[in-house]
Design a protein around this nucleic acid. Structure first.
Lengths: 258, 258
DNA sequence: TAGTGGTCTAGACCACGAC
DNA sequence: TCGTGGTCTAGACCACTAG
């Protein structure tokens, strides 16, 4: 790396770091984190970040607060910290980590335009198995919906979702060709926080093959998921079948993600 | 929850928290973390942990240090923190998170006895594709090994691994029916830190079917992985084919794993 | 040796939830 | 209201890495 490049970088950095107005609504470490992401996007992978003490001074926060921000970035895979040396912009990885994302986000991140076709929606009682998974009475009503999810208009996955109707009254009046997670958030104030997932392989049957426009018995991935909110109350049970020829699951896993 | 139960819990807790001898080798927050894990294992899911201030006093550390320990436990899924209320033992989840684990650990965690059969090992030049993935010259030598991995003696997966021979001289003299990761660590001082993975569905061909003892064209999962050390130097390329009837991939994913 | 990140302290105040 | 976890500070010393 040439000296000139370093100087050019420094100038960019100074720009990006200048004039920070911290508002009082958001936690400081979060504001700092967001500022740092902007800075990182100006740099290239492998570039060294300014020392923590200097960054803290520039942002006008204590070093502990600055470190809290950087810790978030490190665990999200943006930067790598090396004791005794410095903090460096990480290589772009396949995915930042294995996060909980909806289909819409997932596809958008891969550069496709997501869309949906609603196949069916019904309002039925949960029954024993589903009731147990969602921790509700078997008699309680749920919305059951089936969709084809598409990327750039190409069918990618068949999705079956069940949600307690109590949590989402009038869900059948919503535009279900859009992001369900977005509807949950905006209309019902429900935020999915975590999910337990199981991934298995299968081959598609005739009906699934027709919907996905692949040959019968093509390999496919089944993803079963139970989604929870922040207090680990079950929100949804989902089962998705992804065509194997155009979809894969990518993730970065780490040792001891403490 | 009855009052009696609370009292009984308190007694257990007091026991578990008593007499802590901190050694100076390990970081305090790590020692505290390990002690807390012992405490948590005595409790049941949903039980409330003592307040941070009290725990800090008991362990003889500052509250910040105690919080660092609890943060680790929270992100690893052991506990859930609720502002204004308390910290609670988490429900046992399907898996604590999606961590980087070897087959041996993975199987041991599920309660099976892992074993391996070495099918082949060779010492060849990397070639173009592998060279690019491991960021080495196409002419550089690699060890190429193929194994059948078993759980309680039942074939679960076919594994193909390539490693730069420069990093692991004499690997072909090692007992490769055991954990490769353990050999890497103990013999070569190489610690895998993170890996990029891709998961896809497939169906097994005749040869794979024979080795896995499943019918030909059975569904299976392919897991492709490139493993890196802490400095993100590529260490291994692995491809595993898991039988779909007895194996699935389980994980807990979270929103914004900051 | 100098500079980096890693740890740790002893306070302080705030935001939130249960009562 | 009170107790909880969440944030933040201004220092201090340690462990490690580069030169």
């Amino acid at each position: 790396m040439s000296h000139d490049t370093d100087i050019a970088r420094s100038a960019e950095l100074a720009d990006a770091l200048g004039a920070i107005a911290l508002d009082s609504e958001t936690a400081k470490h979060e504001q700092v984190r967001n500022r740092l992401i902007e800075v990182i996007e100006l740099l290239q992978s492998g570039d060294r970040l300014p020392p923590e003490r200097e960054l803290a001074a520039r942002f006008g926060v204590s070093r502990m607060t600055l470190r809290q921000a950087i810790s978030g970035l490190a665990s999200a895979g943006y930067v790598v910290r090396v004791q005794g040396d410095g903090t460096f912009v990480a290589d772009p990885t396949i995915s930042k980590s294995s996060e909980l994302t909806g289909f819409s986000e997932d596809m958008a991140a891969r550069g496709f335009r997501p869309s949906s076709r609603l196949l069916a929606i019904s309002h039925v009682s949960a029954g024993a198995a589903l009731g147990q998974e969602l921790v509700i009475s078997p008699e309680e009503m749920v919305f059951h919906l089936e969709r084809v999810r598409m990327a750039d208009g190409i069918p990618m996955c068949l999705e079956t979702i069940d949600l307690p109707a109590r949590l989402t009254p009038g869900l059948d009046q919503q535009p279900l060709d859009q992001s369900l997670y977005e509807i949950l958030r905006a209309v019902y104030g429900i935020e999915l926080f975590e999910a337990d997932q199981v991934i298995l392989p299968t081959v598609v049957n005739q009906e699934q093959a027709d919907l996905l426009r692949v040959p019968v018995h093509s390999p496919a991935l089944i993803v079963k998921r139970i989604g929870y909110d922040k207090k680990r109350r079950p929100i949804e049970r989902a089962m998705s079948i992804y065509r194997g020829d155009r979809y894969d699951i990518r993730m970065t896993v780490r040792r001891n993600p403490t």
